[in-house]
Amino acid sequence: MADDLIFYTNPMSRGRIARWMLEEVGTPYAVRLVDWGDKPADFLAANPMGKVPTIVHHGRVVSEAAAIIAYLADSFPAAGLAPTAEERADYYRWLFFAAGPLEAASTNLAMGVVPTPQQQVMLGYGSIDRVVSALRTAVGAHDYIAGDRFTAADVYVGSHIDWGRQTGALPDDPAFTRYLDRVMARPAAIRARTLDDALAAQIAPHSGD
């Protein structure tokens, strides 16, 4: 039943990442739209941070997009999105690289925050140039981030590369283009974008959360 899995989201947010994963999993889910100015009480009860995406699966709450990706891959093994033993190291390495260094570096750059050399020592990502170099190597090593087949980690990494390209935080690099061409052409990715674009057209534009 759809109400067994509730998806709190806003199409102008990281909720797009979780939507793509839900479409890859293929299980029914109920969508609860979160309005930034009037967040519903049941949503805040589930996630007092008031941040999307958040899912509630059989009463269990999972927030943070990377955690949702990993949770859904493990909870719905028939989708084949969890890593094999051979893929596990790269899967977790690059999933959390994207959740940590990549998101922090690209977000800071998009906001105009450029750390000094002294500040870079304190940051988990160091500099955007180091992040881009590492990411370029990762997506060029295989067709997909953990090997020769698509896994849940590609949902997260691909989403962040796509966002970074759109905002200018990541360069127009051929390695990124080839990778995005592969992952963004997946039927589930296309369905997710179509659903979120239609939802976004129904609501007034807001900044992300």
Rank of each mutant, 00 (worst) to 15 (best):
V132E: 15
V132R: 04
S133M: 12
S133A: 15
A134E: 15
A134C: 11
A134G: 09
L135I: 11
R136Y: 05
R136W: 03
T137G: 12
T137H: 14
A138H: 04
A138T: 11
V139A: 02
V139R: 03
V139N: 01
G140L: 06
A141E: 15
H142D: 13
H142K: 08
Y144I: 01
Y144P: 04
I145T: 05
A146R: 02
A146I: 08
G147R: 03
D148Y: 05
R149W: 03
R149I: 06
F150K: 02
T151K: 00
A152V: 12
A152M: 11
A153G: 07
V155K: 06
V155G: 07
Y156A: 08
Y156F: 15
V157S: 03
G158H: 07
S159F: 04
S159Q: 07
H160E: 11
H160P: 09
H160S: 11
I161M: 06
I161T: 09
D162P: 07
G164D: 05
G164T: 03
R165E: 08
Q166L: 14
T167W: 05
T167Q: 14
G168M: 12
A169T: 12
L170G: 10
L170Y: 08
L170S: 11
P171T: 13
D172I: 03
D172Q: 12
D172F: 00
D173W: 00
